[in-house]
């Protein structure tokens, strides 16, 4: 099983093979992602009004999946970086780099929608709520990761340094989460944490899950497109270098 996985990954380590696969996957993946998102949005917009929150509850269908994708995105970067570091799989670096701005954007969406959602309840645009605060720190972790790719001009060194940062940053995420939760419960005993709803009614749950799947597909579609772009850019650079 492991061997088979290794063989498959070795097969697609070749950028040309990967590009062939990506070209074939590209259209179906985008199509599926858009269909699921459209259906999810339709379901989300037609849910019954929440007796407490009214229409604003619909922000949840963007906010919660975006927050999921923010965490998933960083886990994806971590997994891709580990693959690149341990198996010396060059596509790992490409995948991690491609996913970073996407994950950061999802984090930003989660922050903005969280703020929009909370505004009517809190009466202010920003509250140092435990979840929002953790999300904000996660955004900085993303920004650091993106910055290191930009700051180091030698591509191989940048790739390895960024991968290292992804690994140590990944260890940091749960520690930040734990600390922020601790800090928050002490400072705001009766937290207005309506963002965490104990039990969701099925009317809300299914659209939410559909949106989650839609966001996941969108994440992969975007990442795949960015990976294709990155490989093309590398090819172009090589060609320029050799052609001069």
């Amino acid at each position: 099983m492991w061997k088979a996985l290794e063989n498959i990954s070795a097969f697609y380590a070749n950028p040309t093979r990967f590009m062939n696969l990506a070209a074939r996957l590209h259209a179906p993946l985008w199509g599926l992602a858009l269909c699921v998102l459209a259906y999810g949005l339709f379901r989300a917009l037609t849910v019954p009004e929440d007796y407490q929150q009214g229409e604003t509850v619909k922000i949840m269908f963007v906010h919660v999946p975006a927050a999921w994708m923010a965490l998933f995105g960083y886990s994806f970067i971590f997994a891709a970086s580990v693959t690149a570091l341990i198996f010396r799989h060059p596509l790992g670096h490409v995948a991690a780099r491609a996913a970073a701005p996407i994950g950061a954007t999802f984090t930003l969406i989660a922050l903005v929608t969280g703020s929009l959602w909370g505004q009517p309840m809190w009466g202010t645009w920003w509250v140092w709520d435990a979840r929002l605060t953790s999300m904000l720190v996660l955004l900085f972790i993303y920004l650091g990761y993106i910055a290191i790719w930009q700051a180091i001009d030698e591509p191989t060194r940048a790739a390895r340094t960024a991968a290292l940062l992804a690994v140590v940053g990944f260890i940091n995420v749960p520690i930040v989460k734990f600390s922020v939760d601790w800090w928050n419960t002490l400072h705001q005993p009766a937290s207005v944490s309506r963002l965490a709803r104990p039990a969701l009614h099925a009317d809300f749950l299914y659209p939410l899950l559909i949106m989650g799947v839609g966001f996941l597909l969108l994440f992969f579609a975007l990442t795949l497109t960015r990976m294709q772009m990155e490989i093309l850019r590398q090819k172009l650079r090589t060609r320029r270098m050799l052609g001069q």
Binding site: V137, L143, G144, V168, V180, W182
Partner: peptide, 20 residues
């Protein structure tokens, strides 16, 4: 500045407990 940006997320937990 890059050092600061990379290090600060790691400083959050220490800050929380230290200042606390």
């Amino acid at each position: 500045l890059l050092t600061v940006l990379l290090s600060l997320p790691f400083y959050v937990p220490v800050m929380i407990f230290g200042a606390g």
